[in-house]
């Protein structure tokens, strides 16, 4: 089956590409929402502009769409993007990295149902997936949003960060967001040479200043 993947650039939506490919699915395109609301519950936003770089490194086409990130408009905007994936790439299903959020899962399910696509959430309820993700992929912390994560974890490798026990290890509560630099199915890998940290009151993100795509 040809599928699209709802892609944010983070560990979960990158890992499900691997899951789908390993099971023999043809990942025909990625779909990324560029949300104007940095607190969107549906679409994760840090380093979203870098998803094009990741898609190039994977050599998978990318569809991006803009959304205000409001509850009412997010779903309509997602449906439009899914229709495009169906028409342009002939996909029959959407794969998402939804893991625990029934808000996220419900919206993806409704959008797929509306446009006639199968909806797959292969890491749903799988809290242990982060162990495999860290084993398989090169992941950095791209954003933090909650006590007690400090500024110095921004840009660090996820596997090198000792997460405090009050922080959910998968970041499912939005405590931190991630960015994937490399994975087994990437044709090339991404190197970030220079970045700034924007941080205040336990909330922050990295801003990439210089990066390269290099051969593996």
């Amino acid at each position: 089956m040809r599928v699209a993947v709802a892609f944010s650039g983070g560990k979960d939506s990158t890992y499900v590409i691997k899951v789908a490919k390993d099971l023999g699915y043809d990942v025909a395109c990625l779909i990324t929402a560029v949300s104007e609301n940095r607190y969107s519950y549906l679409f994760h936003t840090p380093l979203i502009s870098m998803t094009k770089v990741q898609a190039d490194a994977m050599e998978i086409p990318l569809i991006t769409f803009r959304t205000k990130g409001e509850k009412e408009s997010e779903l309509a905007d997602l449906k439009t993007a899914l229709k495009r994936a169906k028409d342009e790439f002939g996909v029959q299903g959407l794969v998402t990295g939804a893991m625990r959020s029934t808000y996220q899962a419900t919206n993806f399910e409704k959008a797929c149902d509306n446009v006639g696509l199968w909806c797959f959430n292969p890491i749903w309820l799988n809290d242990d997936v982060v162990e495999d993700e860290m084993k398989e992929m090169d992941i950095i912390i791209a954003a933090v949003a909650g006590y007690p994560l400090k500024e110095d974890v921004l840009g660090m490798r996820l596997k090198d960060v000792s997460l405090p026990k009050e922080i959910n290890k998968v970041g499912e509560g939005g405590e931190f967001e991630t960015f994937v630099l490399d994975a087994p199915f990437f044709k090339k890998r991404i190197v970030i040479d220079e970045f700034d940290r924007e941080y205040k009151n336990y909330s922050g993100r990295i801003i990439v200043k210089k990066f390269r795509i290099v051969e593996k």
Partner: peptide, 12 residues
């Protein structure tokens, strides 16, 4: 009928 959905509905 699809292995991808078994990950979601059977594995848990």
């Amino acid at each position: 009928s699809e292995r991808l959905s078994e990950k979601e509905f059977v594995d848990p």
